[in-house]
Write a protein that binds this DNA or RNA. Structure first.
Lengths: 137, 137
DNA sequence: CTTGACCATGGAGCATAGTCCATACTTATA
DNA sequence: TATAAGTATGGACTATGCTCCATGGTCAAG
């Protein structure tokens, strides 16, 4: 494990393209756990590593996929809990994969519906418009 | 256009599997525009048609795909505005399709990443763990 | 004509996900 | 050593998307 140079919160904000306030919000929620630097006196500065950047990217990704921060936190903690058991890790990953596949199926259905509608209009709106009910999503 | 029998809000709630309060909230937002029945006196009852059921399903679908109610409203109004211009209608549909395809690409990237990680673990975690940064999402 | 189920309206309250201060301390630079 | 820039903390505030409730009117059955 190569340790990249730690960074302060403003640099981390640039690295992740997230507002500082949002980062602090995620820390308060337990989604990010930066180390504390020796600097900063009574309120030590938080130091972020490269893996925190990855974690932040993962959070944003999971968010776009419809997970709430609470769910993301739960998933991440479950992941950490079984970090030293490959079987458990794979199990958690498989669950996430299954959920994403469901979402993908719904998305595909929606795309089929919209494409069907475009075709139907291009065909001059013949009888039998594509019906959303016919697409499993 | 076959007109199905209209229904009152509680029946509409059953048909869409949405709480009555949520339906009223959507109406207040302008996402649903039921007709008014002759019944109800000073506060006439709202009558829902089959197309409202479809609209409600569409709203929920768009929501799972990451649209806010405001965006959904804008899209729907744009759609209605160009309802009598097939070209405009197709344009709006293509925009929605493009956006969904982007989302699909991100989802696929995430799936690849997770699958790659499972494989990597099954292979006994050799050097070079899959890195999220390598997946464009 | 009463009673229970249903409807409308308006407003309060809540969870999520931030966003924005005010205050105060620390550090680097001049 | 003054000063600007960066940091921490706590709390207020906002937007979105509901959810709940009080009040009061309406309707259909008995």
């Amino acid at each position: 494990m190569v340790k990249g140079p730690d960074m302060l919160i403003s640099e981390f904000a640039r690295a992740t393209d997230l507002p500082v306030d949002t980062i602090r919000f995620y820390i308060a929620k337990g989604l990010l756990k930066p180390e504390r630097s020796a600097k900063g006196g009574a309120n030590p500065y938080q130091m972020f590593r490269q893996e925190d950047v990855t974690a932040a990217r993962m959070i944003r990704l999971q968010q776009t996929l419809g997970y709430s921060l609470g769910e993301i936190l739960a998933l991440n903690e479950e992941y950490r809990a079984g970090e030293h058991s490959p079987e458990r890790t794979i199990e958690v990953l498989q669950m996430q994969i299954a959920r994403l596949e469901e979402r993908r199926a719904a998305l595909d259905a929606a795309l089929s519906f919209l494409r069907g509608k475009v075709e139907w209009i291009k065909a001059g709106k013949p009888d039998g418009a594509p019906r959303l009910e016919d697409y499993r999503c």
